[in-house]
Design a protein around this nucleic acid. Structure first.
Lengths: 197, 197
DNA sequence: AAATAGTAGTTAAGAGTGTTAAATTCATTG
DNA sequence: CAATGAATTTAACACTCTTAACTACTATTT
């Protein structure tokens, strides 16, 4: 942060600095340790300046969450362009889910209010999330054309299984190596997708 | 709280009053709203008294978590005594998991650090949790005798699927009725258990 | 009965949180 | 140079967890 002289930072740079710093503290000390004052200190400003960019801590957290969903949605889109086979598509989307959660754990935590991260704003109502849901439902539909409810049920199952394995792997990462959990994740989701046929 | 005269409360009653009040506030306002002062006010004492019973907020939360795991382990034991068929056992244990999560959501939240609940103490290292893991692994082993690693993998899968469906149902409870989620839960776990054969 | 010891409970304070209003600095313009 | 306007900070409020110091009361001992 100290590298760039504060004066010559643009408004957009400062804004991103706040977001980056929040995630940085969260990654190193956990979300319970993230405070507005700490963020302000890190970007070389006083606390009220942060409020010039985000009206509340909750809105800052929501921004980070939204960024997370947007990033993930773009990855979904990338995969949809890259592969045509529905099974391959769903498998690759599953893998991205895992990759994202372990490369940006602090973002994943805010997205699902895990481990001290707490954002009041409801997770639902995010357009990106709705888009992602749409893509996954389409993909499932394209190789098992069933009723709307059946597809919704399968989507819900897929999401839950993916999220469950990810959060459990995080919780147990000291007892069970992440690499091993990843093998189980891949295997379980492969089987889930195969059984859709 | 005011019903019983504070003087004639025993130490054990006061201790339980603290735990009850903490869960009560959490249930109504969420864990982010639980503070030592609020608890103290509710039980008609000043804040430092709470520290006579629990050295820190974290230790109080850990107590609630431990109680949760103990309760669940006892339910597991009850089921093991009640049924002999391994498939029935695992299915009933799965159902208890769901029942517990939705009857005592605030406890479930502390157990897994969800939605603003945050307890520093690691979830692992709980004897009750280890006991539960043992029971489930035994049960799985008794109808598919495989290697230690395979059983561990299946136990991990089962736990993740159960936890994933539960947390997702909680997150989506406004979009998808809990009753409907429960049907999917039952169905998914029934299938998981059947496929173990 | 008076003095002392011990306990139950309180108030007060330190350090930190989110957040806002007021004050201050600084640059630019008339 | 004076004055306006924006940028930034200080100060404050109402909380948070937590601990030290103090008070009030009870019970025992002399």
């Amino acid at each position: 942060m100290e590298v760039i002289e504060r004066k010559q930072r643009t408004r957009e740079q400062t804004r991103q600095g706040i977001v980056f710093t929040a995630k940085d503290i969260a990654r190193r000390e956990g979300w319970q340790a993230v405070s507005i004052r700490k963020i302000a200190d890190a970007i070389d400003y006083s606390a009220p300046i942060v409020y010039e960019y985000f009206d509340s801590k909750d809105i800052l957290l929501n921004e980070i969450r939204t960024e997370g969903f947007r990033f993930l949605r773009e990855e979904y889109n990338r995969i949809m362009k890259l592969y045509r086979d529905p099974e391959k598509r769903l498998y690759e989307i599953s893998l991205i889910q895992w990759k994202f959660a372990f490369e940006q754990p602090e973002t994943y935590q805010v997205m699902y209010n895990l481990n001290g991260a707490f954002c009041q704003v409801s997770i639902c109502g995010s357009q990106d999330l709705e888009d992602m849901a749409g893509l996954v439902r389409e993909t499932i539909f394209s190789f098992i054309p069933k009723s709307r409810e059946s597809i919704q049920k399968l989507y819900f199952e897929w999401w839950s299984i993916s999220h469950g394995l990810i959060t459990m792997s995080m919780i147990l990462k000291d007892q069970q190596p992440v690499d091993q959990s990843e093998l189980i994740y891949r295997d379980t989701l492969r089987r889930f997708i195969r059984n859709l046929r």
